[in-house]
């Protein structure tokens, strides 16, 4: 196994494209666990933390570009980013412990392609785009189109994510992410749910996005859930309809962390609670 530290995106792409067994290393909080367990045996590890453009959070066209090597702790310390997209930052802040957050990245959480990745539903409802660099240049892809199965991504040969872009926060909008875990910290989501809403001048919900995590092989961006909110004020009837839609949309498995029935039920409960927070934020109340 070789260890490479490219200092430019082009160098990283060239290294990746040259070797099908190459692996990108961001924070290593997934990769090192898998390496040590002998689950992966890359021929070359490409550490992206020396590529300066990938280590910064910057404002761009009213939104935020978060480099693929930025650890979640840094996002949490960024007041302006947190003010615009509190749900995304809170979701990243749920990843592991303080120590894990010192290293874990959004892009790593996404590319690891765990169904339970906490930041993914939050990024999806924010309308986040992943910028991908590869041998054929650069493209921007909606975050929900990156995971293609458990542990699988739609990235092609020689491609890597260089940054995540969070679009400008719409007027009167708010986002939130909640997960259920049996412990209070340090556990893998049994269900996760992100909600983002925007309100019109009358205080009615004019746009909504709802995403569910850990209840299917990949994140679910649910139009039927969003439809229960759009045009309403987020009243109890709308929230009950949202919960029912989320329960119906969830396609979980039975495992030691939760049964199908439990997970479907919790998906509804979390959707409702996350929607309440997102609506309160959109009104400037939270």
């Amino acid at each position: 196994m070789r260890f490479e530290t490219p200092t430019s995106v082009d160098q990283a792409v060239a290294l990746l494209a040259a070797d099908p067994e190459a692996r990108v290393l961001a924070g290593g909080t997934d990769l090192l666990v898998r390496l040590r367990a002998g689950q992966v045996a890359p021929s070359v590890i490409i550490d992206i933390k020396r590529i300066s453009e990938m280590t910064v959070i910057s404002q761009e066209d009213g939104g935020w570009r978060i480099g693929a090597a930025v650890p979640s702790a840094e996002m949490n310390e960024h007041a302006a980013l947190k003010a615009d997209w509190p749900g995304v930052v809170e979701a990243a802040d749920l990843i592991g412990s303080t120590q894990i957050q010192g290293r874990a990245t959004l892009a790593g959480n996404l590319c690891n392609a765990s169904p339970a990745a906490d930041s993914v539903p939050a990024m999806v409802v924010a309308g986040a785009l992943a910028r991908i660099a590869g041998p054929n240049g650069t493209r921007d892809v909606a975050v929900q189109d990156i995971p293609s199965g458990v542990g699988k991504t739609s990235l092609g040969k020689g491609e890597l994510v260089t940054s995540i872009y969070l679009p400008p926060k719409p007027a009167h909008s708010g986002d939130a992410y909640l997960r259920f875990i049996p412990r209070s910290e340090m556990d893998i989501a049994v269900v996760g749910c992100g909600v983002a809403v925007a309100l019109d001048d009358q205080g009615k919900i004019s746009a909504a996005r709802v995403a569910l995590g850990a209840v299917a092989p990949t994140v679910i961006l649910s139009q039927s859930c969003a439809d229960t909110l759009i045009g309403t004020t987020g009243d109890d009837a709308a929230l009950d309809a949202l919960a029912a839609a989320a329960t119906a949309e969830a396609k979980p498995i039975d495992d030691k962390r939760g049964t199908i029935a439990f997970r479907k039920d919790v998906a509804g409960v979390l959707a409702k609670r996350a929607a309440k927070i997102a609506i309160a934020r959109a009104k400037g109340e939270a």
Binding site: G28, L32, R36, A73
Partner: peptide
């Protein structure tokens, strides 16, 4: 590492340069 807490079991020694 550079002011941030990390698990040294999840960091390659080569990364410390």
């Amino acid at each position: 590492v550079d002011g941030r807490l990390v698990c040294s079991c999840l960091m390659l020694a080569a990364e410390a340069e």
